[in-house]
Lab assay of single mutants.
Amino acid sequence: MAEAPPRRLGLGPPPGDAPRAELVALTAVQSEQGEAGGGGSPRRLGLLGSPLPPGAPLPGPGSGSGSACGQRSSAAHKRYRRLQNWVYNVLERPRGWAFVYHVFIFLLVFSCLVLSVLSTIQEHQELANECLLILEFVMIVVFGLEYIVRVWSAGCCCRYRGWQGRFRFARKPFCVIDFIVFVASVAVIAAGTQGNIFATSALRSMRFLQILRMVRMDRRGGTWKLLGSVVYAHSKELITAWYIGFLVLIFASFLVYLAEKDANSDFSSYADSLWWGTITLTTIGYGDKTPHTWLGRVLAAGFALLGISFFALPAGILGSGFALKVQEQHRQKHFEKRRMPAANLIQAAWRLYSTDMSRAYLTATWYYYDSILPSFRELALLFEHVQRARNGGLRPLEVRRAPVPDGAPSRYPPVATCHRPGSTSFCPGESSRMGIKDRIRMGSSQRRTGPSKQHLAPPTMPTSPSSEQVGEATSPTKVQKSWSFNDRTRFRASLRLKPRTSAEDAPSEEVA
């Protein structure tokens, strides 16, 4: 009796068929016929556990003709996506030579605008209408194809895939403007070719909807975003200037109206006075309405000098805001240009540092100066060695804690006790272990408590650290204090090793 083939788990290929790579489910599931010992083939499952149809090819690079078809379809799909992405970037994010197409579109729109203006002049109306009709045909074809291509290429973005995504893309403001202008152009052409009475009025009214094509030149909205950011950044200043200017306008108009309503027919109503105030304070000055009385002229002159300053403030605020924003954008561009080279330089330096163990090129690091100058660790070890030599091999803490019996001779020589300023008595072995921070803190506390006492003391002649007598400086308080830590004499004296002298005989010792 033939044995059933062993159940295979995992992703390994079956024996005897090495080139074939078959994806098997996580659990080997066989058909009921196979479990019962029949000759049925096992049921194939996909990666998600769903059964595959009987005629479906197995996924994998070596699955025969199905694999070749899959490779061809995958390559075609990649080319399709690449083309779609390229078209989308050309239309929505132009760079380099892609601006040539947008310059061509701008020339078409500008020519249409010029011809629309010439069509309103009686001398050039006939020729402009003929040229404009031909140009409209060209623009309908160009913009119609462009609109379709834009909607198709938007599928390269995830949020615009599918018919719902394309509809979302078509609802964008600039796409809506394109659609309105396209419909208006078709209506103008249809009305112009019919030759009816309505054609002339339709051409004159709907052609100027094509002015909206100038708005579509900035599809990404960079200028509007820049203007919005400047207004938002200086909103408080703008609101303040406009508010005060509006108050000056209504008060000036009302007072001039009261002064001129009886003697001047131009100011017969408050609305006429508001019109005069707006034209005057905005420095336009049509001259259609002028005050005639001396009181009205004085009020107009005073409020004009006051109001023009507030009406001119928004222009200066926006101008300075634009300058600052442009400078910030230039700085951001320079930062973006330098970020990648800086990151590459840091990575290269780290690779060199991690692979080169000698690091002989590091001549400006802490390790280099640590090898030249005595390190703080060596100074600490030197302090501890000196203290243990004086205390008979014991550390200062051990000397303080060691009990001394009554009447027993002390094995240590008597030492002079010292007192730290602002604290109780402490171990004499710690007097010379006072660090730089303690010395600086002690000097600052003395300056806070009594700076007036220092200038009363007789001035001391500054001497070099080499000429100081070591026996005289029994305490860190003898170090000359200065008002600034930048004094080199104080810094050098604080680094010197001060020996400890006994109370009975204080021989001067120098520590090399």
Rank of each mutant, 00 (worst) to 15 (best):
K333E: 05
Q194P: 00
I211S: 11
F106L: 07
A191E: 13
E136V: 02
K172Q: 12
Q125H: 15
C156W: 07
R213S: 01
T223P: 00
F251Y: 11
F110Y: 13
F198I: 00
T193P: 04
M214T: 02
K172E: 07
T120I: 02
R219H: 14
A191S: 08
D178H: 08
L203P: 14
G221C: 04
V188D: 14
L209Q: 10
C175F: 00
N196S: 11
P173T: 09
F254S: 10
R216H: 06
Y257F: 15
L249V: 13
D178E: 15
L133F: 14
C175R: 10
R220C: 05
F310V: 08
A184D: 15
L113V: 00
D218G: 07
L108P: 13
Y243H: 12
V149F: 12
G228R: 04
I189N: 13
L238M: 01
R213G: 12
K225T: 08
R219L: 12
R219G: 13
I211T: 06
S253T: 00
M206V: 10
L132R: 07
I197L: 04
L133H: 04
Q210K: 15
I197F: 01
H102P: 03
M214V: 02
K236T: 14
A184V: 05
L115P: 06
I177N: 08
V188L: 07
T223S: 03
R216C: 01
G245W: 10
K225Q: 05
T240P: 04
V109L: 11
S269C: 02
A271G: 09
D178A: 09
W294C: 03
Y232N: 05
L209P: 10
D178Y: 06
N196T: 13
P173S: 02
V188F: 09
K225E: 14
V188G: 13
I211V: 12
L107F: 11
L212Q: 15
V181G: 06
F208S: 06
T278M: 11
S201F: 07
S201A: 00
W224L: 11
I180M: 13
F143Y: 15
R213C: 03
Q210E: 08
G192D: 14
L133I: 01
K225N: 08
E136G: 15
A271S: 07
E136Q: 12
N196Y: 00
F208Y: 10
R204C: 03
M217T: 14
I105L: 09
S116C: 04
E136A: 01
K325M: 08
V215G: 03
V109I: 11
I177S: 06
C175Y: 03
L133R: 09
L133P: 02
F106Y: 06
M206T: 03
I239S: 05
F310S: 09
V181A: 05
L113R: 02
T223I: 04
T290S: 10
F208C: 09
A271T: 01
R213H: 02
L133V: 12
K236R: 01
V231F: 08
G221S: 05
